[in-house]
Design a protein around this nucleic acid. Structure first.
Lengths: 170, 170
DNA sequence: TTTTTACGTCAGCCATATTGACATATATAA
DNA sequence: TTATATATGTCAATATGGCTGACGTAAAAA
């Protein structure tokens, strides 16, 4: 109770701190994905569909390659999920204007509706956690997750100034 | 640069903050599990084996029911993975002393070696992130993840005073 | 003694990932 | 122009890790 930071000195990462971090990640991720998984199962979809819907919603006119790069799966794996989403009219494809080999991906209205349903669910959870934890904690949460990523993945967030090392440590 | 907390006011969870949280979780978890997955594949194991090894290592003499409760999978699913680990001498079982129906689970020496290998890998990543983020950020990271969990999962951490709401918010 | 609990197992199904091989259309470089 | 590289798709086979349902055994508890 005395010292909020007692277990957090990174220079002395003791067994308990280490395990605590691993378990917090495991359990929070488990719970974070459980409800969307539930929703998706009503549509006969799984977590893979969620990821595709999410990133296409995030980056309209995304190409297949970009999506593969984000998801880090093979095109064969993506193909099954993506073509299912296209077939059932959640996502639509159109040829690229500059490069007509590309299939630019967009959510249809139906896709946007599902996207909202999934996002709203997670929004509630995140809002609750952020509110309970407070603004300073949220900043710390974002900074640690950012640094947990590979160099490569961190680039994706480089436009966000509050995540940059220089601005984060006072 | 000006305001570290600019994007973190939980009362106004804007689209960008929401998406940022979702993506930080997705990418950091993806990268956090990628290397262990690599190691495990050398043994012909997957992430499911990792989870079993981890929690048995964490709680020696754990029963099968406790493990099922943590992992939230069916006993049939666990059975395949667990019996493989027992067969290949990573985990050993012994009857409970009080209740002889139970099979108490323990890591063998071989199991402990694999556990260390996996933990050491993640320790480096966590240590790096903690060091880069700083102690305050670490406290925030832990607090947010804690609150992201279901009520139920949070109980697992209730013995850790630095995660309790009263002590976390000044 | 009966019922419940802890655990295991068999059989079959499904989702999601993999690798390898091959095809097509289009862009780009020689 | 021709050759090569790229973006995408698809077929086939395989593996992992979930699931449900059914059934069985040993031991605890009522």
């Amino acid at each position: 109770m005395a010292d909020v930071k007692s277990g957090a000195n990174p220079l002395f990462l003791r067994e308990e701190e280490l395990r605590q971090a691993m378990e917090l990640l495991f359990f929070s991720y488990r719970d974070f994905t459980a409800e969307p998984d539930q929703i998706l199962s009503h549509y006969g979809f799984g977590r893979a569909h969620h990821r595709v819907i999410y990133f296409v919603g995030r980056h309209p006119a995304m190409t297949v390659s970009e999506l593969l790069d984000i998801l880090r799966i093979t095109k064969q794996s993506l193909s099954r999920v993506l073509s299912q989403l296209v077939r059932e009219d959640f996502i639509q494809q159109r040829p690229g204007t500059e490069d007509r080999r590309q299939r630019l991906l967009e959510l249809t209205e139906k896709g946007k509706k599902l996207e909202s349903e999934l996002i709203e669910n997670q929004r509630r959870r995140i809002a609750r956690a952020y509110r309970a934890a407070g603004a300073d904690a949220v900043a710390g949460f974002r900074t640690v997750l950012y640094n947990l990523m590979d160099e490569d993945g961190r680039k994706r967030f480089d436009h966000i100034e509050t995540l940059q090392p220089a601005t984060v440590r006072r």
